[in-house]
Write a protein that binds this DNA or RNA. Structure first.
Length: 457
RNA sequence: GUGGUUGUAGCUCAGUUGGUUAGAGCAUCAGAUUGUGGUUCUGAGGGUCGCCGGUUCGAACCCGGUCAUCCACCCCA
């Protein structure tokens, strides 16, 4: 057998039948909760104009955007144009002469682009969900792929904090249905801004958040070292230390942060927003939320509440994230449309569920029943019964050839088909069949008229 | 982008200081077994040792490069 030399681009994967079924289970669970909460579906193209994406994800993000080479760069008439363009690329600049399109990096920016383009037609608040792949030129590693799915739900055209409440509960409900134990972390950019304000000015905010975000990974001393490196003085670092030492229940944490930053305008605003959201949960089944003031999140368009979901008991980064943005569409010339949204990382959710063995066993069941093929006349009878069952909505198939039991059993076992239906010469004569449940080994004789009423579950 | 790990049969992995024809388990296929599988036994097929080059009388093994993988960093879902 010649060994195939074909391969896949780095960081991409094929999904076999079993994997697709398990992924579909996650997708359909998320989709049905999205629909339940009143979100409407949207799809956008895999590629966007490069300028739509550039500059929206920070300097690091720009590097991770997959760019598409223009067609026709071998056109001799334009050779000089392309040579000049290539020179610019070598200097780290982009030029439309070489590349003007790119694969989408997330679903939020394309959505903002869509809203900006269609604001006249949309009725606000507009609630949309979107389930599509995105691409990032990251170096692959655990839980990181170059092609992966995001499932986003966003509400635009409303500043109401009720949206945050709903999205939090939507997170909780979805992970409850999937059986994934999670912690939903909440913070507010205004609180981070307040911290920056009292520690050297708002322009230091990114430096500060990047450093404190690493707290649980590198420890408080290294965070302080990093802050020092980024130009903060001892007083400021002392304040941040106090900020990072906030502990206890959600209420206790808020109390401590109030003492620290409650006197600033943005600090007070952020705190009251958080309190509003948390207050709503008192009258409900409390979702697993945890206020975490070290949560920062990289995307710099967030302005208010920020979310992040961590799977409990699994070695995996965040499996979901989101936040509020005041003016995303402003980037596309349509100011004044605020929004808030969340995202599910399906590929990571899959990895967690696989690791923790959380997929229900019946997810893998394709066909519910297999008719054994035991001869020409038997096979013909089985085929007509097969069609009856299919018309009644039972997923079923007939073994493709008359062969020994051993093979037919093994086929059923391998395809995880729970029931086999045996019609041999004896059953043909008696007008009945044997139905065997392979999971329990039990079998019984059923008349052919009754077969269609049998419960294949 | 930086650093490291690994790459031998479909899968998981052995393979001595470099030495004849590269092995095992599982899986597959065939038979023992003509209508009740999963156990057991027997047998068979399946490898350019990731790829390219170098050192050597001789390379799966040493060296260089390259590709892929996994892991960590950066960043992120």
């Amino acid at each position: 057998m010649a060994k195939p030399t074909v391969s896949l681009p780095q960081g991409t994967r094929d999904f076999g039948p079993d994997t697709v079924r398990k992924r579909q289970y996650i997708f359909s669970t998320i989709r049905s909760v999205f629909e339940l909460y009143g979100f409407q579906p949207l799809e956008t193209p895999a590629m966007e104009n490069l300028e739509t994406l550039m500059g929206k994800y920070g300097e690091e993000g720009d590097k991770l955007i997959f760019k598409i080479l223009n067609n026709g760069v071998d056109n001799k008439n334009k050779e000089q144009l392309f040579r000049d363009g290539f020179e610019k690329i070598l200097q780290g600049k982009n030029t439309k002469d070489i590349t003007e399109r790119a694969l989408r990096y997330d679903l939020t920016i394309p959505f903002a682009r869509y809203v900006a383009m269609n604001q006249g037609q949309l009725s606000f608040p507009f609630k949309r969900y979107q389930i599509q792949p995105v691409w990032r030129a990251d170096k692959p590693q655990r839980g990181r792929y170059r092609e992966f799915y995001q499932c986003d739900a966003d509400v635009v055209g409303s500043t109401s904090l009720l949206n945050e409440v709903e999205l939090t509960i939507l997170y909780a409900e979805t992970f409850k249905r999937l059986g994934v134990p999670v912690e939903i972390k909440l913070n507010n950019r205004k609180i981070l801004a307040a911290l920056a304000e009292v520690c050297g000015g708002v322009e230091k905010m990114i430096d500060i958040t990047v450093a404190i975000d690493k707290l649980d990974k590198i420890g408080i001393e290294k965070v302080e070292g990093e802050l020092e490196q980024r130009g903060l003085d001892a007083d400021q670092i002392a304040t941040i230390r106090k900020y990072l030492q906030v502990t206890g229940s959600n209420e206790e944490r808020i109390g401590q942060i109030k003492a620290l930053l409650g006197s600033t305008t943005s600090g007070a605003a952020g705190i009251s927003e958080l309190e509003f959201i948390l207050g709503y949960f008192d009258q409900l089944d409390r979702p697993p939320v945890a206020v975490d003031f070290t949560l920062a999140r990289g995307l710099n368009y967030y302005t208010g509440t920020i979310f992040e979901v961590k799977a409990l008991g699994a070695n995996m980064g965040s499996i979901g994230g989101g936040g509020r943005y005041d003016d995303l569409t402003g980037l596309f010339g349509v100011p004044g449309i605020p929004g808030v949204g969340i995202s599910f990382g399906v590929d990571r959710i899959y990895d967690v569920m696989d690791e923790l063995n959380l997929f229900p066993p019946d997810v893998q069941v394709g066909s519910q029943a297999l008719f054994f093929n035991l001869g020409d006349a038997e096979g013909r009878k089985a085929f007509s019964l097969l069609q009856h069952l299919r018309n009644a909505g039972v997923r079923a198939e007939l073994f493709h050839e008359n062969t020994k039991f051993d093979k037919q059993f093994k086929y059923a076992e391998k395809k995880n088909i729970p029931f086999v239906i045996i019609i041999g010469s004896k059953e043909l004569a008696e007008n009945n069949c044997v139905i065997k449940d392979l999971r329990t080994g039990e079998q019984k004789s059923v008349s052919l008229d009754e077969l269609v009423n049998f419960s294949f579950l």
